[in-house]
Design a protein around this nucleic acid. Structure first.
Lengths: 233, 233
DNA sequence: CAACGCAAAATTGTATACAAAGTGGGCCTA
DNA sequence: TAGGCCCACTTTGTATACAATTTTGCGTTG
């Protein structure tokens, strides 16, 4: 069994309200991948995923097809789905797209976000600081996700949001496969502080610079860690 | 029957080599939508599409799910798929994404394209001129598609390409729903000439400006035509 | 005659069965 | 014993059957 298997991942009991079964299964698989519970290149056998999620193949396949569209998994004829392998070249491509896009989103945020959203950003930043102080990494991760959620909502452009979420998911997955580095985490926090401050002040130029720097720095960190992982294996 | 229905769209005979049935069906549906054979908001009934394409529901649904992921169609629970309606607000969102992305692609092209690709661009531009001269709109459309294909290949970034193809497909569909305007076509050609010249000279700054101008001009044309169509109905 | 409600038809969602292709192991042979 | 071939098994691809939901149309009623 590929995953800790005591319980089925989709709680079949209570909370099946308001979202479709399909969406639940897809989200379960997406989370599982993002959390790094599947190795890169690993084959995803439908039967196993069925047992794991409790869903039947119809549902499961729809979910897989959607994940394929998002780039997280890929498919080979009569060979099924497997988790997409991402190499340094792909990382460069992804960041080449992400850098201008996320910067654009941040700039639009400074123009369009509500005061409420500005405040949210500020609050989440404070929470992240607290998480670092207490080394609560799971909560940090959740906070970061909410941070981006507010940012992408505040830019008031669903197209940009969707395009970004796809690339960020893949980077996110990649990160889960690498050893996270405490030093990088500190550096990242510094950059986030700078970005947050720029966003709060609705300072477009500062936002642009902070965002660009942050992303390129993240890119280099990923590439460095990949090279390191490569040489270790 | 919703579409001219003499023959099945997937030629079942000879050319079923090298691509999967699924991919063929999807491409048939995509083309049908892009050519404007379905009205915006129109319901896509699975049974009808099955008869039309000759495929069975399994295949068809996979194709539909993929098209949904690309944004061309949308889905409502127990109400099936329908062609996505695009309003002025959505157009603004799409172009807000497209403008910087396509400009980025063009800039990268000036850095990375092979001499062969530069030449292709030049040739296709000449062909487009010829198409205008002879008013061969179908061929113009095909040439334009090849132009973009070379451009997106030359930028050497598959991520950017995929992101762009999604948005361009939707704009393309939108265009098919509007009355095409001869004046706009001429204006567009002028802009393309300018862009082509900048690309050929690998002049990044000129490329940036030509590309931006072209896209924004296209955007305004679409919005104008939408407003016009609105007032006519 | 309009409006409401119910029932039948149509349509989508889900599950299962069958076909096609790939994978691997064992046996035979050189 | 190494290599290759064949057969059984696994897995995915496709088709079909069944269930849930929506839509439609008719008849009744106020």
């Amino acid at each position: 069994m590929l995953i800790e298997s005591n319980d089925q991942l989709v709680s079949s009991g209570i909370n099946s309200e308001s979202t479709t079964l399909r969406a639940q299964v897809q989200e379960v698989l997406r989370s599982a991948i993002l959390e790094g519970r599947f190795k890169a290149g690993q084959k995803l056998v439908e039967r196993e995923l069925c047992e794991l999620t409790g869903a039947s193949r119809s549902i499961l396949r729809e979910a897989l097809i959607n994940l394929e569209a998002s780039g997280l998994i890929e498919r080979q004829s009569y060979r099924g789905f497997s988790v997409t392998r991402i190499g340094p070249r792909k990382v460069k491509e992804i960041f080449e797209l992400r850098a201008p896009l996320e910067t654009l989103a941040a700039e639009l945020f400074t123009e369009r976000a509500s005061d409420q959203e500005i405040e949210s950003i500020s609050e989440i930043m404070a929470e992240m600081e607290a998480c670092i102080a207490t080394s609560d990494l799971a909560r940090l991760r959740a906070a970061k996700e909410r941070y981006y959620d507010v940012l992408f909502t505040g830019c008031r452009n669903i197209e940009i949001r969707k395009a970004l979420e796809n690339v960020i998911d893949r980077i996110h997955y990649l990160r889960s496969q690498l050893i996270s580095d405490a030093e990088r985490r500190d550096q990242s926090l510094i950059e986030m502080r700078r970005l947050t401050s720029a966003l709060i002040n609705r300072d477009q130029l500062a936002t642009r610079q902070a965002c660009m720097d942050h992303i390129l720095s993240a890119r280099d960190a990923v590439l460095r860690q990949m090279a390191q992982a490569q040489s270790n294996s």
